[in-house]
């Protein structure tokens, strides 16, 4: 017999309470919905501030050591480039992780409005949840990063991405991989620094901060300048929320944004089916064995022998 000393008692209590803490964390992870990590960082892109100088594109190119661009970054003729019978403007590629496009929306009377876009770093990313080798990770800082070492190259993530962001190095025979913005995770974000494009932007069209704070800032900007902004923070709830969010002075659909997106994670679309899977695994064997026994009605063995001949 050992007497429990006062100190020992505290130890046990501490252990117990930490166990409770651990189990409650587990409970939190077991939740059906994931709304992003609590201290996730993000960027608020205020399109009313963007002047289309493309400095972010240049900074991104330099930060990631991307190939030389076709045209200089101060060449604004790229804004006139259109593809697919004029239906599409420039998009992210394996050589450019961020792109600025110019729009002349009706709402601004044809005045140019610039839109920067890149990976929006969803809270519950479709690329991540659709990947069958878990090549994607949502870091606690909010970045959605990709591991080329396990990627099989099925390109499901490209199909799944609601923002059409991931690009693929199709021309590589031996090491093809997905290329997309990684929030400068390896070089900056994980050291607490803002991504290169944010730092380079002269207008602070890109505001870096905690996602939670950015949402407050965004709504405050709208509240203070109701005439300047459309009353919507794009990315606050789209596909379950994204780390990168947008403010605009003209309706988002006039700037090439997809405004028909669902406001819950893409993953939810598959949940009803995935929930059905264990049911099939559990019910089908007994159900069909039952049918089998009913159908054969005891004479099964004879028939088997006959047909076996």
């Amino acid at each position: 017999m050992r007497k429990i000393s006062r100190r020992g008692f505290f130890k046990v209590t501490a252990a117990g309470s930490s166990a409770v803490a651990v189990s409650s964390t587990k409970k939190a992870f077991g939740m059906k919905e994931f709304h992003g990590y609590p201290n996730s960082m993000g960027v608020l892109v205020d399109l009313t501030r963007c002047i289309g100088c493309r400095t972010c594109e240049a900074a991104c190119n330099k930060e990631h050591g991307l190939p030389e661009p076709e045209l200089p970054f101060d060449d604004f003729s790229v804004f006139d480039q259109v593809y697919h019978d004029g239906k599409e403007k420039r998009r992210t590629s394996d050589k450019a992780f961020t792109v600025v496009n110019r729009y002349n929306p009706k709402a601004s009377g044809g005045e140019p409005v610039y839109r920067k876009f890149q990976c929006n770093h969803c809270n519950e990313p479709a690329c991540l949840t659709s990947c069958f080798v878990n090549a994607y990770t949502k870091t606690k800082e909010g970045a959605v990063i990709y591991n080329p070492d396990v990627c099989v190259g099925c390109r499901m993530c490209m199909v799944a991405c609601p923002f059409l962001v991931p690009a693929y190095t199709y021309e590589s025979a031996l090491h093809p991989q997905i290329k997309k913005c990684n929030f400068c995770y390896d070089t900056r974000l994980k050291y607490g620094k803002p991504p290169a494009c944010v730092e380079a932007c002269p207008q602070e069209a890109l505001t870096f901060g905690h996602r939670k704070t950015l949402i407050k800032i965004a709504h405050e900007r709208i509240r203070e300048n109701p005439k300047k902004y459309v009353d919507h923070v794009y990315g606050e709830t789209e596909v379950g929320g994204t780390s990168w969010m947008y403010l605009s002075g003209v309706p988002f659909d006039q700037l090439g944004f997809n405004t028909d997106l669902q406001h819950h994670p893409i993953l939810d679309n598959t949940k009803s089916f995935l929930g059905f899977v264990p049911m099939v695994l559990g019910i089908w064997p007994a159900l069909f064995m039952g049918f089998h026994l009913l159908a054969k009605g005891g004479k099964g063995n004879d028939e088997d022998k006959q047909s076996n001949k």
């Binding site: 990947c131 069958f132 080798v133 396990v150 990627c151 099989v152 993953l267």
Partner: peptide
């Protein structure tokens, strides 16, 4: 890497898995 989803890295939440 066809066998990766079987033996190397599991993306268990994915339908493709």
């Amino acid at each position: 890497r066809l066998y990766y989803p079987m033996f190397v890295s599991w993306g268990t939440a994915a339908v493709l898995f």
